[in-house]
Design a protein around this nucleic acid. Structure first.
Lengths: 192, 192
DNA sequence: GTCTATATGCGGATAGAC
DNA sequence: GTCTATCCGCATATAGAC
């Protein structure tokens, strides 16, 4: 018999998402979240550096997954393809079966500038990390950053569509479409 | 004879940049900045919403300039070219003759996560604004966002180089190079 | 000045692992 | 029996609202 119920972190994340959805981020206290999860405020701060961080657990997993997939991928893939493949694998593993929760999280973020700032920071860090991973595969730093940034822009477009109510396609497919659109758009030039 | 010296905003910005460079952002108070500019703390907060904002005056001008140039540009230019042309014009008008000040500002930002967050927010807003401006020229929203995001990634690469000590080329030229690199990188695909 | 909420430091308790 | 991971309790610094 364990002294405590397992999965404290997961329970806190679920409770927070529920309460933020019901009452909004600002109007929800850490004490409430902990109570709903059957834990104390102190335990919340043992697991999360601050109140916002409870919404970004998936981001860390996503980053790890992406970096692993880039490192494990075919070395001969061009940089953008390498990133897009990794993003697709990560999306399949971490997002596809959690559409409801991810969409609710997205709605909470959309309603709160503080949380959007945190999201921007995480994305900037992720972009840099992807660039570093590409660089480790032999890509020069500038190309690596351009490929990472381009992939993240496509990912944003795909993710935005994926969270629309009636969207049925997988994030991977939407990302593939977005990358194709990006390739078309970037290729158009007055010079020709 | 004016009652006060002119250019209060400019003097505050210059004083802030000096002090942040000498002592760091955190260790500089608004009162010090105001004093060095020959003004009071009250005047500082009349012009800037908070301490960070004193470093982002140029960002607002830049955004206005870019949006104006996109709106005024040749309607037949492809979206990415339209943005890049506007960024180039804005860079020439606002950055080229202030390399020293802009570089010092960049160093201050690099040393402070709080300021980097603000910068990320400003860039996100700018990207959205550029997309909206493209959309107003008849570009569909998805293409507009992809072009805006791609241009901003190239701009980041160019700006980073432009602030290196021995870099002599203009930001416009560096941006042009970065966009060419981006086009090359994004075009590479395993599918061919 | 009080109240609320966020956030941190430090110590203590216990189930399970070794 | 000791060690470690996990969680709790208490005190407190800080900041904003009222």
């Amino acid at each position: 018999m364990p002294r405590w119920k397992p999965d404290a972190v997961e329970r806190l994340q679920a409770a927070a998402l529920e309460l933020f959805g019901e009452q909004g981020f600002e109007r929800t206290t850490v004490a409430e979240i902990a109570q709903r999860a059957g834990l104390t405020q102190r335990t919340f701060f043992n697991h999360f550096a601050d109140k916002r961080e409870v919404l970004f657990g998936l981001s860390s997993e996503l980053q790890q997954e992406i970096l692993r997939e880039i490192a494990a991928g075919d070395d001969t893939l061009p940089p953008l393809d390498a990133v897009v493949r990794a993003l697709g694998v990560a999306a399949d593993r971490l997002f596809e079966d959690r559409r409801a929760a991810v969409t609710r999280r997205h709605a909470v973020l959309a309603a709160n500038p503080e949380l959007q700032e945190r999201e921007l920071s995480k994305n900037a860090v992720l972009t840099e990390a992807i660039a570093t991973a590409l660089n480790a595969r032999g890509c020069d730093p500038e190309t690596a950053f351009l490929a990472a940034g381009a992939a993240m822009v496509a990912q944003q477009v795909a993710f935005q569509k994926w969270t629309l109510p009636d969207e049925k396609r997988s994030l991977r497919d939407l990302l593939s479409d977005a990358v194709n659109s990006l390739r078309t758009t970037v290729s158009q030039t007055a010079g020709t």
